[in-house]
């Protein structure tokens, strides 16, 4: 898994590549929470390069989503591959996050 961070003013874009599986879930969550605490604006997570996600990856996104909601900031996901979108749909996460 690789995460590239781009800063645009107070907003952050995280471009994720690889697998959001159980072994990668903790470092992914840490990167998300670092972005939450290290910025003041909106956060976009670009998942175009993610070809696999398990519930551990979803959990990391939910932890970040709760932190952003508490801070009254926007967390947006974008560019989900079809299989990844299916996992989001089945688990109900498609309705929890703004997805572009």
């Amino acid at each position: 898994m690789q995460i590239d961070r781009e800063q645009a003013g107070s907003d952050v874009v995280l471009k994720v590549t690889g697998r959001l599986d159980t072994p990668n879930a903790k470092p992914f969550e840490t990167s998300l929470l670092d972005a939450v605490s290290g910025s003041e604006g909106a956060i976009t997570v670009d998942l175009a390069g993610v070809d696999y996600v398990s519930s551990s990856g979803l959990r990391a996104l939910l932890v970040a989503g709760k932190a952003m909601r508490t801070a009254k900031r926007d967390l947006t996901l974008r560019s989900l591959q079809p299989q990844i979108r299916e996992v989001f749909d089945i688990s109900g996460f498609s309705t929890l996050f703004e997805i572009k």
């Binding site: 519930s55 979803l58 959990r59 989503g65 709760k66 909601r69 688990s91 109900g92 929890l96 996050f97």
Partner: peptide, 12 residues
């Protein structure tokens, strides 16, 4: 869940 606030971390 209907919202991020009410969503459970596990069980998916």
């Amino acid at each position: 869940a209907e919202s991020v606030e009410s969503a459970h971390i596990g069980g998916h």
